[in-house]
Write a protein that binds this DNA or RNA. Sequence first.
DNA 1: TGCTGAAGTAAAGTTTGCTTTACATTATGC
DNA 2: GCATAATGTAAAGCAAACTTTACTTCAGCA
Lengths: 65, 65
Amino acid sequence: MKNHIKALRQQRELTQQALAKLLGVSRQTVISIESGRFDPSLPLAFKLARVLDAPIEAIFDAEEG
Amino acid sequence: MKNHIKALRQQRELTQQALAKLLGVSRQTVISIESGRFDPSLPLAFKLARVLDAPIEAIFDAEEG
DNA sequence: TGCTGAAGTAAAGTTTGCTTTACATTATGC
DNA sequence: GCATAATGTAAAGCAAACTTTACTTCAGCA
């Protein structure tokens, strides 16, 4: 599932480390989600939406598999 | 994470079995998510939003932990 | 009565999300 | 040159999502 976290994070001038801290996860988790290694859990997706100030549907591409 | 899947499913007159088939998961998964045993993955949450014709934020309560 | 559909619980097992640790690369600045 | 910050990869291990199977309960109906 593709996402625009990297772009949104950079717009907010947040490092991966800073975003990880805001989300309460490790830096590896941020890297892995940004690079598409895996999808975040639903609670984490909601936190991302709150931290990045964007609706979930705007952060993730709902394209089908 | 609380959700309104059961109510939305019943409004659409879908059985758990029918919803599971539409989502491409097992009936157990539908039961477990409806009853709050665990949260769906993000891809599954998107499928739920599509099948139930409601935005993710309307299906799940984003209350903080 | 007994059958069938819908909803529910439980347990074992696989897959995926997440953590922790360690190491590599690139850029900035002393 | 050396240190530090930011990004990235990889691997081992734990936790949560999901599957499969099996069993239970309740309602409706012939």
